[in-house]
Design a protein around this nucleic acid. Structure first.
Length: 390
DNA sequence: TCTGGGGTCCTAGGACCC
DNA sequence: TCTGGGGTCCTAGGACCC
């Protein structure tokens, strides 16, 4: 989906199109906005029906933000000021104080996410969910899926999604997921790009390695240190050298990726492996001085994870915690139980045991609770009874 | 006043078992 | 007298993705 979060926001606030805008940080306070409007602009009775009429100068600005949030989306006019995804909002405010700041509204994005995926599945049922704004679709067995190299079906999908949601998307059509993902970036927004097997050299090799889904900042830095900047550079290296330098599995994968080889299927269903909740505190907390506050947050996180498990019908047997200290160092501890659980008190108890195994000298910035080794409720194997006699 | 939240997968060592 | 060889599970950390 093109600029997904921003586009969803523009549906209800079209007056913000074209302005520097940033999405990130705290919870939505739409009611506050309406209440403030009625207090300060009483010439009309404002309701949630009039969001598109809210004057632009009434929206909160980045410069007034206080907190530890990061940018999830920055519109193009905002990016011109050097603002980028994942940047701290406080830092971004220095670069572009006048940008409008909207809080993240995940519930709304999830609603539109479900809707555009429903539209796709109706046309092309073999669809793999890749998060809130992205999917892989297998065109192979869709009637007409091969016409004009997939272009016809891609256009139909774009049209249907736009009619149902008012949102645009960009589609890459290719022989496999690896190339399709890269191709989808070629023609943004609202574009279609078809890359054939024989086009890899011309269209993929000139790209920086970082464009490959699976090469992140660490691998890219290491590649650069070896003089490898483009996918073509990578393809030129011996497979054996890549294996020797990057390890057996990753080295071989790098070589395949550079040559456009990928045989992963489009996976329509998958079971979750873990569920977690974590939170960053407004200020760093100390295990001793802030014991009560920390304990309350800890319990709440356990209750939230338990609630997620119960709502979705899963039980897990590996309970874990995650801590981020004030120096940004991350520590995890986990413990596997003999039985599966979705009980908040049990999770809290075991997570508490995990916490005892950590040196809590430093102040904490983040606390998280995770439950892994999930199985569906009812499919959990019964813990084996200990034999009384052999 | 830098630096969110929710995930997956991989690696590597040690325990433990046959 | 040199000390097998698989396999699985558990734990901790880390890279990467959306």
């Amino acid at each position: 989906m093109d600029a997904f979060y921003a586009s969803v926001e523009w549906l209800r606030y079209p007056q913000l199109k074209g302005l520097p805008m940033v999405i990130g940080g705290g919870r939505r306070r739409e009611d506050d906005l309406i209440a403030r409007l009625n207090a300060e602009r009483p010439e009309r009775a404002w309701t949630a029906e009039h969001l598109a009429d809210i004057p632009v100068d009434f929206f909160p600005l980045l410069k007034d933000y206080v907190g530890r949030g990061v940018i999830t989306t920055a519109t193009y006019p905002a990016r011109q000021f050097g603002i980028g995804s994942a940047m701290g909002l406080m830092k971004a405010a220095k670069l572009c104080p006048q940008a409008i700041l909207l809080p993240v509204d995940f519930d709304q994005y999830r609603r539109f996410s479900r809707e555009f995926k429903r539209v796709i599945r109706e046309i092309a049922p073999v669809m793999e969910d890749r998060g809130v704004d992205e999917v892989y679709i297998d065109f192979t067995d869709v009637p007409g899926g091969q016409r004009e190299g997939g272009r016809v079906l891609a256009r139909l999908l774009q049209k249907s999604i736009f009619e149902a949601t008012g949102l645009t998307c960009s589609i890459g059509v290719a022989p496999n997921k690896l190339i399709a993902k890269m191709a989808s970036e070629f023609n943004k927004p609202n574009g279609i790009s078809v890359v054939h097997e024989g086009d890899v050299q011309a269209q993929i090799w000139p790209l920086p390695c970082r464009k490959i889904n699976g090469i992140g900042p660490k691998a890219d830095a290491k590649l650069q240190a070896h003089g490898i900047h483009t996918v073509g550079d990578l393809a030129a290296r011996e497979r054996a050298w890549l294996v020797a330098t990057f390890g057996k599995a990753y080295g071989a994968w790098l070589h395949d990726a550079a040559w456009g080889r990928d045989n992963r299927p489009v996976v329509t269903e998958s079971e979750p492996v873990s569920m977690s909740r974590e939170t960053t505190f407004d200020r760093d907390l100390h295990a001793v001085q802030d014991r009560a506050e920390l304990g309350a947050v800890f319990t709440r996180l356990c209750e939230q994870v338990a609630g997620d498990l119960q709502r979705k019908g899963y039980v897990g047997k590996t309970i874990g915690i995650k801590l981020r200290f004030d120096d940004f160092k991350i520590v995890t501890r986990d413990q596997t139980l003999p039985e599966h659980t979705q009980d908040a008190r049990r999770i809290r108890q075991v997570a508490g045991q995990c916490l005892k195994r950590v040196d809590l000298g430093r102040r904490l910035r983040l606390l998280g609770v995770r439950v892994g080794s999930l199985v569906r409720v009812g499919e959990a194997p019964q813990p084996e009874a200990l034999p009384l006699f052999d």
